[in-house]
Amino acid sequence: MNFELIVFLVLAAAAIASAILMITRKNPVTSALYLVFNFFIIAVLYLFLRAQFIAIIQITVYAGAIMVLFLFVIMLLNLGDDKLLKWKLNSGKSIAALLAIALLVEILYFVMNFTSTSELSPKADSMGTVEAIGKVLYSSYLFPFEITSILLLAAIVGAIFLAKKKFE
């Protein structure tokens, strides 16, 4: 076992633990903070895969912007420990959870069966830099990039309209 694999396994265990803690906590603020922790671990895994640019936007956009928005809404709505929101399983939800675990078994079965490489592609080192991503993004993927700006504009207008006090 080499050093990199040990670090990966520790990070993977921490990611799984923080995800489980996120869905089992009563207080949504605690859940949000565990999710931020999970995002940071995933960002480190992106660095393992030589995707520096994606690792940085994972931290700034996900852990920074999106989770701050979540915490802002939780505090705006003043959601504390609510007895009614506690994790309670009824028969329908137990079946749903069992089906989800069947999904996991199915995916893991296929993953264990495919022939996997353990060497990164030689191109991987130069692929995840800001320069390389920018060159591909502004040439081959320019049109989807422009469409994204329209999507974000629609999201801004939609969010303002939905959160307004009265529909007029």
Binding site: L79, D82, K88, A96
Partner: peptide, 11 residues
């Protein structure tokens, strides 16, 4: 599992 079993919309 979280989506299917939780009751708090934010979580």
């Amino acid at each position: 599992v979280g989506v299917l079993t939780l009751r708090n919309a934010i979580v």
